[in-house]
Amino acid sequence: MKQTSLDSTSAWRLRLAQTMDGRAVQRLVTGLILINAAILGLLTSPPIVSQWGWLLVPLDAIILACFFAELSLRFAARGIALLRDPWALFDCIVVAIALIPASGPFAVLRALRVLRVLRLVSINPSMRKVVQALLASLPGMGNIIMLMSLIFYVAAVMATQLFGERFPEWFGSLTASLYSLFQMMTLDSWSSGTVRPIMEVYPLAWLFFIPYVLIATFMMLNLFIAVIVNAMQSAHEPSPEEQAAAAREQAILDELRALRSEVAELRRQQP
């Protein structure tokens, strides 16, 4: 009797897990996330809040209750093992942020409610692959970041020594030079806003700034892009384990075909 009860409980939890992972529930949750995102955006407008707050605030609370119910059902289906999934843990943290009281020392954290919108990432397999590819690219970016930091530091020291006396607002200190060079790396008015005024005082300043822009912007940023693209391609390729499993399945299929042909040949040879 006890074994029968355990089997029925396991079957019930299995059916619940299949339902929660089903396409209908996923679509419902996706729709609620989109509606909640729109509500959170509308709540940032005081005129809209004064006119429609009586409707938007209860809707936000109802959708939040739906998110709690969804997570509760997932825990009922999988138990505490659900937290072993990083995406499920992320969902729990994002939804739990809504429990922070509106007043008190942690009230500022309620601004993180909008992170609920990011549940679209955890619920969409394609988006999850993109995020996983970005995380996988972080180790490859380490050496690039170190090299770029060296370039920034060397260029900032040189710019401070060369142009700091006449242009202290841009290059008067090491930190000011670092910020100015970072702005130039983004190509934000680097020529008309910074370099041309400096060239009126130092006509040969282009000998410093043009190589810097070429190295920092066109070379280093392209290296970042190359690492990310490579990680994206690797994320869409099958893993070595999947390739090995596919090879084993193909070998088994080949053996079955060979056995079938041998059996057919033996049948033909029988009188």
Rank of each mutant, 00 (worst) to 15 (best):
T9V: 14
L99W: 02
M199G: 10
C92G: 03
L55C: 10
I198E: 00
L204G: 04
A77W: 00
L6H: 12
S45F: 13
P139H: 10
A235P: 12
I35L: 14
S191T: 08
E169V: 05
K2Y: 14
I93A: 10
L34N: 07
L115A: 08
F171D: 00
A111Y: 02
I225N: 01
A102R: 10
A107C: 02
Y153D: 06
N222Q: 11
T175Y: 04
G41H: 10
C66Q: 06
R78Y: 01
P197T: 02
V25G: 07
D188F: 09
V213K: 05
L99A: 12
C66V: 11
K129E: 02
M185N: 14
L138S: 08
E242S: 03
L162E: 11
P168S: 04
A176I: 14
A216I: 04
I100D: 02
F75P: 00
F67K: 01
I33Q: 05
P238W: 00
E255D: 11
S103P: 05
A251E: 04
M199D: 10
I252E: 11
V157Q: 10
D91P: 00
Q270N: 06
F167I: 03
R110D: 06
I198D: 01
A81Q: 13
Y153I: 13
Y212W: 12
G53P: 10
Q183H: 00
I48W: 15
L266C: 08
P47F: 10
E262K: 14
L187I: 08
T217D: 05
P86K: 09
A76N: 06
S177Y: 09
T9P: 00
L223K: 01
A102E: 07
L223F: 04
M146Y: 05
M1N: 07
H236W: 09
L64W: 09
D7C: 02
Q270T: 12
I145R: 02
M127R: 08
P271R: 15
S149K: 08
G142F: 07
T194D: 00
A37I: 07
L147T: 11
F182K: 02
M199E: 15
I93D: 02
L266V: 14
K129Y: 00
R257K: 15
W190Y: 11
I252T: 06
F171Q: 01
L28T: 15
S137E: 04
A65G: 07
D188R: 07
E200A: 08
S122G: 08
R196L: 13
A246G: 03
L178D: 11
D254L: 06
A156L: 05
T9C: 08
L83Q: 00
Y153A: 12
